[in-house]
Design a protein around this nucleic acid. Structure first.
Lengths: 231, 231
DNA sequence: TTCCATATTGGAACGGCGCTCCAGATGTGT
DNA sequence: ACACATCTGGAGCGCCGTTCCAATATGGAA
């Protein structure tokens, strides 16, 4: 008989770092960044703060763990195809993850710039870096090309994610996008001439198409600077 | 005699939104994001919270105003040269601003993705957009090209800024960079093969050179996709 | 089985935060 | 001189992350 099988059942499932992180992600998904609180977390897990702090050092670490869990999941899918197609797949995977977990964008941007030593940065860097390598970029330029790709992917996906959540729950994403475009068009016509021109462009195009267009622009740069590659 | 000249001097300078924002920037510069508190702000300005809230709606608005002030200043410098040189100048202007105000990176990234309707996004978009235009990019692609540029500039500059402040005050930037590189090199050799290879590259190159290399990659993409431009 | 050291739990409480409330000071127009 | 709008700052509210610690499980040694 396996150990512990006989013992009276616990009142609840045993607390564990995994269960805590899982609950954190659910809270973040449900109520955004401000929805994750140790108070509601203790309530949700039917425990006290001390128990949680036994498994997790502090809130920052919890956010890192939640971010890492979601990102790892998003990057887990294998893909096969031309390097260009694979870059698209990875980028869209992150795009979708950010879309499904709108709090993720801010966390990624913050963790990337605050603590590149954490688990998240290398994960993304590696996933994109491998494909950049496959494009035929010479080794001394891997970092440059991968950085450009990564910062664009996260920045653009983050900007996009704002559209789906920031406003009231009943507001449609298209509405919000239009609102931003409107705000831009209301700017001073002389001082913000170019921004106004870009506003319509932004709101009239499909999100993912627009997103991929940016990636293709980067890939075109890669192809131009390092010819002989195989995109 | 001008109005008010005769009146007894106030005990202190009159409170104003400008003075508040100015003090906020100073506090942020001195102690980072967590250094800006209404408590220390009231102390610094020798007043109470109510007085500040009369001029500023909430802390978020204050952060937006502080960010906008610094960014406006950074983008104020006019430059003349080839479009490529001008893009470099604008990018380096932002790079330097982020370097001088390390809290700026996180604010920019957050405000960009959270509320693109705010004052900051259009400011940067316009400044870069004008130069993109000058590169000869066709109008329907202004937004794509400018987005890529902007996200890279802010992301890369933000990553760089982390190097100068995150660690203890006596830690050198080179040290921190090396520490990140070290952390990456300590990763699993198989799972993180590419990241490990990029680590040395990152730490061995001059910050600004590396930064501009990324920009040139984007510009190469622009030139490749929209030939006939004048870089 | 009994016992004990260790691992884990959860409730009470602390200091600090953003923010609100409001009584009063300050300045302005008549 | 008076009334009114603008502006000030102190007291205090509710919530946050976090700490402390007495009580409770757990699992191996006796």
């Amino acid at each position: 008989m396996a150990t512990g099988t006989r013992r009276a059942q616990r009142r609840t499932e045993a607390l564990s770092r995994e269960r805590i992180v899982e609950a954190a992600v659910e809270l973040l998904d449900a109520a955004g960044e401000s929805g994750l609180t140790f108070r509601v977390l203790t309530e949700r897990l039917a425990t006290g703060p001390g128990a949680i702090y036994w498994h997790v050092a502090n809130k920052g670490e919890l956010l890192v763990a939640a971010t890492d869990a979601v990102v790892a999941d998003a990057l887990a899918a294998e893909s096969a195809g031309s390097p260009r197609e694979e870059v698209h797949a990875v980028a869209l995977g992150l795009f979708s993850a950010i879309d499904a977990h709108p709090w993720l964008a801010a966390q990624l941007l913050l963790q990337l710039s605050r603590s590149p030593g954490g688990p998240v940065t290398p994960r993304i860097l590696e996933s994109l870096g491998r494909r950049v390598r496959a494009l035929g970029v010479p080794e001394e330029h891997w970092f440059t090309a991968t950085s450009v790709l990564m910062h664009y992917v996260l920045g653009a996906a983050g900007q996009n994610a704002a559209n789906s959540q920031v406003t009231e729950p009943d507001a449609d994403r298209a509405e919000f996008l239009a609102a931003t475009a409107e705000a831009w068009e209301a700017l001073d016509p002389e001082e913000y001439e170019t921004t106004r021109a870009m506003a319509s462009q932004m709101s009239e195009h499909d999100d993912r198409e627009q997103f991929l267009a940016g990636i293709d622009l980067v890939l075109a740069g890669v192809a131009a600077l390092y010819p002989g590659g195989r995109a």
